[in-house]
């Protein structure tokens, strides 16, 4: 009897291949029938901008921006809404939806019978989520422009920054999903995502916290994205932004590394 032969993941954190692009093709076919679904995704952050930024913002005067300068609440919260939308989109796609597709959706079982590997599927789906996220980010920027919230050319970089946030959370979400066995396990993801969404300097400055707590918040992942995109939106460029970028990039790479080591074992039963 020979030793059990397991699929060997390629060395390093590389997984997926050019074949991943075919998953994106499939999604384009699907959305050819239902492009309204994609369009409707633009509305959620828009509603939040109107409701929280302008509605709730009317109760709030100015607020301190990234460099300590007073800015309108709309300008403060809009970049954060862009960031959280990027995070939520990527997390939904890489956790619930990915788990559902691979465990319950027969379509993905049929794709596994082709030369595409689970890694290809993971990367393709993540890529599609990012493409969609990029479209939403562009749409959101246009809305910000309409409301007079574009105040610096640096804001253009908020779109790739939103993609970076999506990549970081999508990759980690996928890594987390590779450890999930039942739907119940996804409570844990909510347990992490909701506090991040509420407390990462999204709706009010982290100055509101006592110093020790503030430092902890400043080390959490969503804060990196919020501060990065907000700084770009107000043109407060500083070296700390490079730290944010490096943090998010490393987080994404680490997520992919874990995913690539686990995904085949997990899906090829």
């Amino acid at each position: 009897m020979t030793a059990p032969t397991l699929r060997v993941a390629p060395a390093g954190f590389g997984f997926g291949s050019r074949r991943s692009a075919r998953l994106i093709e499939r999604n384009l076919y699907v959305y050819k029938h239902g492009w309204l679904v994609i369009l409707s995704g633009f509305f959620e952050p828009l509603f939040y901008l109107l409701g929280i930024g302008f509605g709730l913002g009317s109760l709030i005067g100015t607020i301190n921006g990234p460099a300590g300068q007073p800015i309108s609440y709309q300008l403060f919260v809009a970049p954060a809404l862009l960031t959280t939308a990027a995070m939520n989109g990527a997390i939904n796609e890489s956790t619930f939806n990915f788990f559902f597709k691979l465990n319950y959706n027969k379509t993905f079982a049929s794709i596994l019978a082709t030369p595409l590997s689970p890694g290809d599927i993971a990367l393709g789906e993540l890529g599609w989520a990012l493409i969609r996220g990029g479209l939403y980010a562009l749409g959101f920027m246009a809305v910000m422009g309409l409301f007079g919230l574009v105040v610096t050319p640096w804001v253009v970089l908020a779109v790739p920054a939103a993609l970076l946030v999506g990549f970081a959370f999508g990759a980690v979400g996928m890594a987390a999903t590779s450890f999930m066995t039942t739907w119940q396990d996804f409570d844990l993801i909510q347990l992490v995502v909701l506090p991040l969404f509420l407390f990462s300097g999204t709706f009010y400055p982290v100055d509101a916290y006592p110093d020790a707590l503030r430092v902890i918040v400043q080390l959490t992942p969503l804060y990196q994205g919020v501060d990065l995109i907000r700084s770009l939106a107000v043109g407060a460029i500083s070296p700390i932004l490079l730290f944010h970028v490096a943090y998010l990039a490393l987080m994404g790479i680490a997520g992919l590394a874990v995913t690539s080591r686990r995904i085949d074992l997990l899906l090829l039963k």
């Binding site: 709730l56 109760l59 709030i60 005067g61 607020i63 609440y73 739907w183 119940q184 996804f186 409570d187 909510q190 347990l191 909701l194 506090p195 509420l198 407390f199 709706f203 009010y204 509101a208």
Partner: peptide, 28 residues
Amino acid sequence: FRASIFSSFLSPALFLTAMGVGLGSYVS
């Protein structure tokens, strides 16, 4: 029901803390 324990207890408490107490302190 384990799932709903989280959403029933924790999520309102977190929302009230962030939006009510945190953001609330900035209401003019």
